[in-house]
Deep mutational scan, measured.
Amino acid sequence: LDMDCLPYGWEEAYTADGIKYFINHVTQTTSWIHPVMSVLNLSRSE
């Protein structure tokens, strides 16, 4: 699993305190969880 590779439309950013988060420019949303990890967690719960 390549954690450096973000899906299309996603960008890694940091808060003023240096905390990493992710921006989805396609849906105009943000997430604290890496988008690949959130997809993996969803697929495990099914």
Score class of each variant (00 low, 15 high):
Val39Gly: 15
Val39Pro: 15
Pro35Val: 01
Val26Phe: 10
Ser43Ala: 08
Tyr8Asp: 15
Thr29Cys: 14
Trp10Glu: 08
Asn41Val: 05
Gly9Ala: 03
His34Ser: 09
Ala16Asn: 10
Asp2Leu: 09
Gly18Gln: 06
Asp4Met: 01
Val36Gly: 15
Leu42Gln: 12
Pro7Lys: 06
Gln28Tyr: 01
Trp10Pro: 04
Gly18Met: 02
Glu12Pro: 03
Pro7Glu: 05
Glu46Gln: 13
Leu40Phe: 10
Val39Thr: 13
Cys5Leu: 09
Tyr8Glu: 15
Arg44Glu: 15
Thr15Ile: 04
Tyr8Arg: 10
Val39Asn: 14
His34Met: 04
Tyr21Leu: 04
Val26Met: 10
Asp4Gln: 07
Val39Trp: 07
Glu11Gln: 09
Glu46Cys: 15
Asp4Arg: 07
His25Gly: 05
Asn41Ala: 10
Pro35Ala: 00
Asn41His: 06
His34Cys: 09
Ser45Trp: 01
Lys20Val: 05
Leu6Lys: 11
Met37Ile: 09
Ser45Pro: 12
Tyr14Cys: 07
Ile19Pro: 04
Ile33Arg: 08
Trp10Tyr: 04
Thr29Asp: 04
Tyr14Trp: 10
Thr29Phe: 06
Met37Tyr: 09
Tyr21Cys: 01
Ser45Arg: 11
His34Arg: 08
Leu6Thr: 04
Val36Arg: 15
Met37Val: 11
Glu12Leu: 03
Trp10Ser: 03
Ile19Ser: 15
Ile19Phe: 10
Leu42Trp: 10
Gly9Thr: 02
Leu1Thr: 13
Gln28His: 11
Arg44Gln: 12
Met3Val: 13
Glu12Thr: 08
Thr30Leu: 08
Met37Ser: 15
Ser38Thr: 04
Glu11Ser: 09
Thr15His: 01
Ser38Ala: 06
Val39His: 11
His34Thr: 01
Trp32Cys: 10
Val26His: 14
Val36Cys: 15
Leu6Gln: 03
Asn24Leu: 01
Ser45Tyr: 10
His34Lys: 05
Leu6Val: 08
Phe22Val: 01
Cys5Gly: 12
Glu12His: 03
Ser43Arg: 11
Glu12Arg: 03
Asp17Asn: 07
His25Gln: 11
Thr30Asn: 05
Tyr21Asp: 00
Leu40His: 13
Asn24Pro: 02
Asp17His: 05
His34Ile: 05
Gln28Trp: 05
Ser38Met: 06
Thr27Glu: 06
Pro35Gly: 03
Asp17Met: 01
